[in-house]
Amino acid sequence: MNSRKIKTWAWVHKWSSLVCTLFMLLLCITGLPLIFTHEIRHLLGTEVEAPKMAPGTPHISLDRVLEIAKARHPDRVVQFASQADDDDNLWFVTLTHTPEPTDDFKSVAVDARTGVVLAQPKFDEGFMYVMYKLHVDLFAGLPGKLFLGFMGLLLLLAIVSGVVLYSPFMRKLDFGTVRRDKRPRLKWLDLHNLLGVVTLVWLFVVGSTGMINTWADLLIKYWQHDQLSALLAPYKGEPTVPVAERGSVQRSMEAAMQRAPDTKLSFIAFPGTSFSSPHHTTFFLRGNEPFTSKLYQPVLVDAKTAEVTAAPKLPWYLTALLVSQPLHFGDYGGMPMQIIWALLDIATIIVLGSGLYLWLKRGNPVPASPKAAAHEKPAPDASSQPEPAPAMKAQA
């Protein structure tokens, strides 16, 4: 590669790294506890669990569950109802003042067998909530998500440009070399490059899936406009179905489960909410296998008649979104994968931190002692090499 191309790639790497480094550090630090969300909530005592009962204990009607939850907040409407991934004995009912998306919500956890209210968890406060909001949207809603998505794009540019720069930089060094006998800046440069190699694939996967996740709201809105609008043509002009005129939710759920056998219920979106239509109760079902459990099959049930209207297949872009979400947090392989994700996250924090250190020290090199200078051979990182940038100087 000629010097002009090296300078061009070095410029791309430097500025893409400079702009995104601090935000990537924030995302790595906040993402670390999010990998262990359930475990941390369990330790903090905020994880809601259904009490143990004899296997096969019958469940009460879903309609009754919703009545019990609404009795706690009679001035609100039911927006969503969901079940835990590994426990169908517990219902989480979300209630808001209006069906539209809002941060003002209440959650009620109801035992599916006894109807006892187990807790009213507050998902909008506490340490994990702060970590989640900083990681997802910086407490800025959709603009914050899109901004972090742009930072993710810059991260991918920094990774690609780092790969391009890595080969000429390491021409005169063995792979994985860390020059411990040199001045601190050189040692950190070598460590930065070595950890960059180790985390390359993981960081690219996590960065790209994170960027896709920031588009979730826009992709869902496009899906509603592109596909659901055609399905709702027969209901054009009709108002949102009033609560008093809705049929049995239990009967609607049974009809949805019959339409998509060998699936489990993930969550229910009620009429007028962001994941449904003004005329349907929409059931999102998931598979039973590790992979298919991350993919949803929506089933639209007429809110009045409790009859299935449609069960559209999700388009490819929503499938990509659903696959990327658990992959981003290592939520596929249980605890072993979570530990691997955490170790790689820590390594990435070191890569980002060392890149920032190298950038700050670029104009203040530590002079070698006269004795050392007399015996030291010229280092292969000489001035002909491009300056390191905070994210990944020679990320590879």
Rank of each mutant, 00 (worst) to 15 (best):
V19C: 09
D137I: 00
T94R: 10
M257A: 15
E47R: 12
Q250K: 06
G176F: 11
F283R: 04
S274A: 08
S369C: 09
K294T: 06
M53V: 12
V93W: 12
L232C: 06
G353Y: 03
L148P: 05
R259P: 11
L18I: 15
T348A: 13
I339G: 13
V308T: 12
A269N: 00
P378K: 12
W15F: 11
T46C: 10
Q120R: 14
A303F: 04
V117D: 06
F92M: 15
R4T: 13
L34Q: 08
T102V: 04
L191Q: 12
W188Q: 03
V164R: 09
P271W: 05
G56M: 15
F204P: 06
L25D: 05
L25W: 05
K377I: 00
E387S: 13
P168D: 09
S17E: 07
Q338C: 11
I159G: 04
T214F: 01
A50R: 15
L148Q: 13
F284V: 10
P184F: 08
L195Y: 07
G115Y: 06
L322Y: 09
G162Y: 03
S61V: 00
G56I: 06
Q325H: 05
G149Q: 10
E254N: 13
D190H: 02
I268L: 07
F105L: 15
S3F: 04
N2Y: 12
R259N: 11
R286E: 07
D63H: 02
P290M: 02
L194Y: 08
F291E: 10
A310P: 07
P271S: 07
G162W: 04
T240L: 10
H280A: 11
G162M: 13
Y132G: 05
L360A: 14
T30E: 07
D103H: 09
V108D: 05
V116L: 00
W341P: 00
V78T: 13
F36A: 09
F80G: 09
G333A: 08
I159C: 15
V178Y: 10
E245H: 09
M392D: 07
G115M: 12
V12R: 06
A379M: 03
F283C: 10
T94P: 00
V206T: 11
T209S: 14
T102Y: 06
K52G: 02
L327H: 01
L231E: 00
T102D: 07
Q385E: 14
E39D: 11
T177R: 14
K133Y: 01
Q224D: 01
V163I: 15
